[in-house]
Design a protein around this nucleic acid. Sequence first.
DNA 1: TAGGCCATCTGGTCCT
DNA 2: AGGACCAGATGGCCTA
Length: 266
Amino acid sequence: MDSDTSRVSSRPSSPEVHDMFLHAMKKHMVGFSGTVSSTQSDSPPEIPADMRSLSDDEDDITLKMLSKKDRKLLSENELQGMRLKINSRERKRMHDLNIAMDGLREVMPYAHGPSVRKLSKIATLLLARNYILMLSNSLEEMKRLVSEIYGSGHHGSFHPSACGTMAHTGPLPGHPTVSHASHPVHHPLLPPAVSTAASLSATGLTSIRPHHGLLKAPSAGPGPLGSSFHHWGAGMPCPCSMCQVPPPHVSSMSAVTMSRLTSDSK
DNA sequence: TAGGCCATCTGGTCCT
DNA sequence: AGGACCAGATGGCCTA
């Protein structure tokens, strides 16, 4: 379910069982603060001492609840029951949302190793967006190449002009910079035209904290997200279309090359 | 210790 | 009426 089990497991994920009694008690506490913190209500051991003295006397509570002279109390109890139901629904909703978020994380091309921290929600969403943009660009580029090659029969320019718009700027984290020296690499998880620090901040990516160092290994690259996102270091194939086709020094493209290109880019 | 991230509660709003 | 969705508040956990 939640990939960050170590963290999540430290929290009571479904406190509704033991909470029924706790909430009922808290509602009957005289002078109990209206702002009931979640963690307080979720953690039975944290019941204040004065409250524990009440919890010991369950019969007293039951008596109060059943007392017909205090009809308001009953309605409050009903209210509390409703509140518990609503809280439970909300919890379930958020859990489902987290499950979906985990599903998104799983298909994100960042290193999934145990040494890598889980992407935060905001980072996951932003990276997913940029990844989709990159894939869309790659698809368009591929379409253009195919139509250019098979349409006009012109084999002269292999390097896609779309590369210019994809802003291959810095060395990709995990990528050997040398291999891309003549082939600046666009970062697949960055917006197509945003690789500079300035444009990054414009997209809000730089506003994301490096997430406690997504990579615990200190050998992250110097790129904009180099210290945080080590996408291709864990055996993940770089989805960059340029990394899946022959290097640009192959000036003429043979049919064999093209078939490889199309098959590899799937 | 500050700041980031998170889970949960809660009240409000909208929809069916 | 009940449920889904949302945003604000709150407090815990973790890391730099």
